[in-house]
Simulated scan of single mutants.
Amino acid sequence: MVKRDNAVDLVGLLSVEGQDLAASWVGEVTGSLGGRVSAAELNRELRELYEALVDALRKGATDVHSEHMSEVRAHLTELSRNRARQGFSPSETAVSVFALKRVLEPVLERGTADDVRAYLRLSRILDSLGLFTIETYTQTRDELITAQAEQLLELSTPVVRLWDGVIAVPLVGTLDSARTQVVMEKLLQALVDTGSEQAIIDITGVPAVDTQVAQHLLKTIVAARLMGAECTVSGISPQIAQTIVALGIEFDGIVTKASLADALKLALRRSGVDLVAHTGTQR
């Protein structure tokens, strides 16, 4: 009895109906994605993947991480990244691989025992490719979430120019070490960009401050002084004041004001601006 070559069996299984099999694969995946990917894009992705898979199997590749599978991995990586950016779920992404198994099932009904064995071997390969797809998808989603978090961090820490030579950083929400580091970097850069000599850090919208955050704020103020700017902290709530006292954090030499308005008045006086109070309305 002559033993058939595994690669021949696998390639033969995928070539039973030639390009019609690839078309069936595209149709199966199109239905599962609900039309949220254009037919042209999906057709290109899966046909290129199909051809790369057949080529890899023809070379005897069965290990997903082998050199012969490099083109298959490249196509799967592109597909997974696209699905992650488009907002698809991991299951919807992996179905692009697993759907090929369903497409091949009718072939088995008229196939031989060798075809069944080839199908089982191919199923194991497709399972590994599906896992690779999910891993790549997850990595891409993590990268997207990290990038979005960094963008939100930037947006939640604005530096506002209040007057010539006066800038302010109004903080709202929870402060942590990462965010206070961003505060320091953006404030110091703004001092350079605007040539300001007065800076206000307003924490009216901050519900709580711990030791680490307070230390970061102090370092920010010291760094600003080294650059020739004076810092004023405004908006310290009674709760934060009690916390600072209880933790024994020294704010000696740092000017604090109850409100942003009071801090701005002080900064303007320091800048040599004469403030005139109007007691009435002119007609």
Rank of each mutant, 00 (worst) to 15 (best):
T146W: 04
V160R: 11
E135K: 03
V160C: 09
D142Y: 07
E150W: 04
Y137K: 01
R161W: 05
E135W: 02
I134V: 15
L153I: 04
T133K: 00
P158H: 12
T146K: 12
E150F: 03
T138Y: 00
V160W: 13
L152F: 07
D142N: 10
Q148I: 07
I134K: 00
V166W: 05
F132T: 01
T136W: 02
D142L: 10
I134E: 02
R161L: 14
L155E: 10
T140F: 00
E135M: 03
A149C: 01
Y137S: 01
Y137G: 00
T136H: 03
T140Y: 00
A149P: 02
E143N: 09
T133M: 03
P158Q: 12
S156H: 12
V159M: 12
L153A: 10
V166A: 05
E150D: 15
F132G: 00
F132R: 00
E135S: 06
D164Q: 13
Q139V: 12
E135T: 06
L144P: 06
V159D: 08
A147Y: 07
L162D: 12
L162K: 10
Q151R: 07
V159L: 13
W163F: 14
V159A: 10
A147G: 06
Q148F: 06
V160P: 08
T140E: 14
D142T: 13
A147D: 14
V166H: 04
Y137E: 02
E143D: 14
Y137W: 14
T133Q: 01
E135R: 04
E143M: 07
R161M: 15
L153D: 08
D164M: 03
E154S: 10
E150L: 11
V159P: 06
F132M: 03
E150Q: 15
V159Y: 06
E150T: 09
Q139R: 13
E135P: 02
D142R: 11
T136L: 02
D142P: 01
F132L: 07
L153C: 04
L162T: 13
A149R: 08
I134G: 00
I145H: 13
Q151E: 11
E154W: 06
G165A: 12
A149Q: 12
T138L: 02
I134D: 01
G165T: 14
L162S: 12
L162G: 09
L131P: 02
